[in-house]
Design a protein around this nucleic acid. Structure first.
Lengths: 140, 140
DNA sequence: TCTTGAGCCTCTAGTGGCTAGAGGTTGTAG
DNA sequence: CTACAACCTCTAGCCACTAGAGGCTCAAGA
């Protein structure tokens, strides 16, 4: 069961140029080629690439994914880092949800007041500028 | 109360070169300068920039932020002619909250199922591989 | 008043994670 | 055996920064 790159793309939802790009940066290994120099992939590649796509959709960075892939290759090792990568991610996502909810409230209020013909004293900026003072660490 | 760029950076959590970059692309207006050509900012700039940082963290693109800023500057206009802009943003925000909530659920499940033991029992990696077959349409 | 050095200035180039396009080659269906 | 979709490599572009070189400013201390 060997697939050309286009088939792999179709099966995984990762675009052809992106697959080549992933090969270039070493996220996927270079597959064997035909006589005519075309890539041919196997089932493993479908799985690996699906994994990558899914992780990317969840917002993991390429370096995180590299780590996760390395871990999955060594099943004896402890899963502590996988766990902490995921936990960090979760925290970030929770923070985002909270902020978006605040912004949503503010926009909703504005739209409603506009509908009632009131003066729109807009507080969009305050709604989001609020957290400004909780400065501190901002990685990546 | 006039601040040099470094102070503004400290107060807002936006890095100095990023502030200059924002000025360059017209996201913030060029502030007055000292005799010696150094930027001096006021309190408004702190708020505006905090807002920008926050909005960026929420994943809004620079062009979206430009619109949001314009809305907040002219609330009258948004009442009468541009409240569709607000509505569009609201829709976008709701979509985002929904998808982040889904991610959160998925990550939470992954983390819970990870027994904190060995990779071979850890479900994080499997969870990421799972959706592999649900190919199909993937927007943007 | 003068000096020192942290902080400011501009400019160019590099980063991540793709995406687009030019220009040429291969593989397979008819 | 031919047509043509799909493949190949290579370069350049995108967004939103980030880093570094090389030089100038400003305020606090001697």
């Amino acid at each position: 069961m060997t697939l050309p790159i286009g088939e792999l793309a179709r099966k995984t939802g990762v675009k052809v140029p992106t697959i080549r790009f992933y090969e270039q940066i070493g996220l996927v290994t270079a597959p064997p080629r035909t006589e005519g120099n075309q890539r041919r992939y196997g089932q493993e590649d479908v799985e690996r690439l699906s994994f990558i796509r899914h992780a990317r959709e969840l917002g993991f960075e390429v370096d995180d994914i590299r780590e996760l892939l390395a871990m999955s290759a060594e099943p004896q090792a402890s899963c502590h880092s996988a766990d902490s990568i995921a936990r960090n991610h979760l925290k970030e996502i929770e923070r985002r949800i909270a902020s978006l909810t605040a912004l949503k409230g503010e926009l909703t209020r504005m739209i409603e007041e506009c509908g009632h013909g009131r003066i729109c004293d807009c507080r969009i900026i305050e709604a989001l500028a609020d957290h400004s003072q909780c400065s501190g660490e901002h990685k990546h």
